[in-house]
């Protein structure tokens, strides 16, 4: 009788945990197996660093378009290029979605300027790490963010290989992430290039379909032998980005991280994500099995420890 009762209890317990597991298991699944090449007709921007003269017009255009607060120093103040914080040059912030930095590259004639903003990855780390799905990669190519659902965990900042998302630490009531949205709602959606691209007097940036830009970039490299480094930064980095760069000096000399690899960030996490369904399905059976084994021995003995079912 005792034995029967225990077995029924065991079945009930096993069943309950199995049901619980399957309920919890829904969802955290799939993302594991496919590989995403990017939307076929998504747009992008090719930035030719060799053309940039560091006039900061793009910064001013961005500030105006996105209605950002006035900068600490005016946009014609070139002393910002000398700013160093924590050993780092200027970076994007909640008040500036794009910045230009100056680099003095040994052996290169004159300084090299580099514009920087969100690179709008094909498979964004921010997007894959967000547990409220605040980020969207639009078919047009922009990575946009919905501040209405953001909880403020800041995992996207951990996951972004380019350190782009900027959090409003100063706001106690409604802090959100601020970053370049490729002028999605005001321009890109209507097929127009972002404000910075249009404002540039040097035509540093070319707006177009990402596919075509890659072709254009390689043509430019081939057409000007010796001028460019034979690499389009962003063509393959972390799975490819919408913003890509041509440079006449090594990318590592002008602030690019050249050790990111070609894998999108989500690929590093997949190893764990594949463990999840295994644990969810194998553990209940395994441990109820252990329980059965452990209790079986005891049932054969005639004595029952007084502690049991206490």
């Amino acid at each position: 009788m005792k034995n029967l009762l225990d077995r029924r209890k065991f079945l009930k317990g096993g069943l309950a945990s199995g049901v619980l597991a399957s309920v919890l298991g829904t969802g955290k699944k799939a993302s594991a197996e496919h590989s995403f090449e990017g939307y076929p007709d998504s747009m992008g921007v090719l930035v030719d660093l060799s053309k940039c003269i560091g006039c900061r017009t793009c910064e001013a255009a961005c500030n105006k378009e996105q209605e950002l607060p006035a900068p600490d120093k005016p946009f014609d103040d070139m002393s910002v290029f000398d700013e160093i914080r924590h050993g780092q040059k200027r970076r994007t912030s909640e008040k500036a979605y794009t910045v230009v930095n100056r680099y003095d590259v040994p052996g290169h004639d004159g300084p090299v300027f580099r514009k920087f903003q969100c690179n709008h990855c094909n498979e964004p780390g921010c997007l894959s790490s967000c547990f409220v799905n605040a980020y969207t990669k639009t078919p047009e190519g922009a990575v946009i963010y919905n501040e209405k659902v953001c909880v403020g965990c800041r995992t996207c900042m951990i996951a972004c290989p380019f350190y782009v998302p900027a959090y409003q630490y100063s706001s106690p009531i409604n802090p959100v992430i601020k970053k370049c949205k490729m002028c999605y709602d005001t321009r890109l959606k209507f097929g127009r290039p972002p404000a910075c691209v249009e404002a540039c007097p040097q035509e540093v940036m070319t707006f177009g379909k990402r596919r075509d830009l890659i072709k254009l970039g390689h043509e430019r490299i081939q057409g000007n032998p010796g001028k460019y480094i034979d690499h389009i930064y962003g063509e393959k980095e972390v799975g490819g980005t919408a913003w890509m760069y041509l440079s006449s000096v090594p990318f590592s000399e002008v602030g690019f991280n050249t050790e990111l690899g070609d894998q999108p960030i989500i690929n590093y996490v997949k190893e764990f994500l594949t463990v999840v369904p295994m644990v969810l399905t194998i553990w209940p059976a395994l441990f109820t099995g252990f329980h059965l084994l452990a209790r079986r021995k005891e049932n054969q003995k005639t004595t029952t420890p007084s502690d049991r079912n206490a």
């Binding site: 955290k28 993302s31 894959s128 547990f131 953001c150 909880v151 403020g152 965990c153």
Partner: peptide, 21 residues
């Protein structure tokens, strides 16, 4: 959390089920 009152958002309001968090 920046907005702790939204703690239940990942449960009920806006779900990002592929994220580790």
């Amino acid at each position: 959390l920046g907005q702790p009152w939204r703690l239940i958002y990942p449960m009920f309001v806006s779900l990002g089920p592929a994220a580790v968090l």
